[in-house]
Design a protein around this nucleic acid. Structure first.
Lengths: 103, 103
DNA sequence: TAACTATATAACTTTTTAGTAAGTTATTGC
DNA sequence: GCAATAACTTACTAAAAAGTTATATAGTTA
């Protein structure tokens, strides 16, 4: 029983239902960001989890990765069209959290 | 670093960002359901995970639990007001999954 | 009296997710 | 030639989430 789709909601959760994924996507809604900058937007994330998470998001076609062949390295991340289509969802989650945390 | 709130989105994910929580909440949007019926709506969930998850949802004030003192037992679950306030979020997640899975 | 019912719990194991700490790369600027 | 840099990788460990199996409850019905 692995990644079996029972309903659309489940499908969505399988794709982005982890600790860091929504957060990373959310911070890319407004701008493309360099790796280091994006990482600084996400306090508490470890180096490993950051790399691992962006790798998965890239594999799933939610973000794209642009490497500039310079030294020291420069890498930029941004949302793909698929990633951008999550905007409504990400804002809904954020908005709910904002309202609820005030109660 | 535990359950630290960095942004509203994070707050929301800490509350409902698990495999089964959104699914259970979603299936209670339309009706209150008996324990067994609700569980049958969620294929693949184990007995333990079902109980554990509804316990947590209840503790967080997202669902309520009504026990009828009969034998064999009868227990009904339904959304609290706080739980109902998640409707927009849950539908957004579901709708996105529906659209995206068709692409 | 023994099986049946719906709900739940407990002990234990496995799997998944996350964290830590160290190392790699290849050029630049001292 | 040696430290500094930004992005990344690797090996290892720890913690959290999920799964499996067995058991409890206590009236009802056969």
């Amino acid at each position: 029983m692995k990644n079996e789709v029972k309903c659309p909601l489940n499908y969505t959760m399988n794709l982005i239902g982890t600790k860091w994924k929504p957060l990373i996507l959310f911070h890319l809604l407004d701008d493309n960001l360099r790796s280091g900058v994006l990482q600084k937007h996400i306090p508490g994330i470890s180096n490993k989890m950051f790399t691992q998470t962006v790798r998965e998001l890239e594999k799933d076609g939610l973000i794209h990765r642009k490497v500039y062949p310079v030294v020291p390295p420069k890498v930029e991340y941004g949302l793909t069209e698929r990633g951008k289509s999550l905007e409504t969802v990400l804002r809904a989650l954020d908005t709910w959290g904002l309202k609820d945390s005030k109660i």
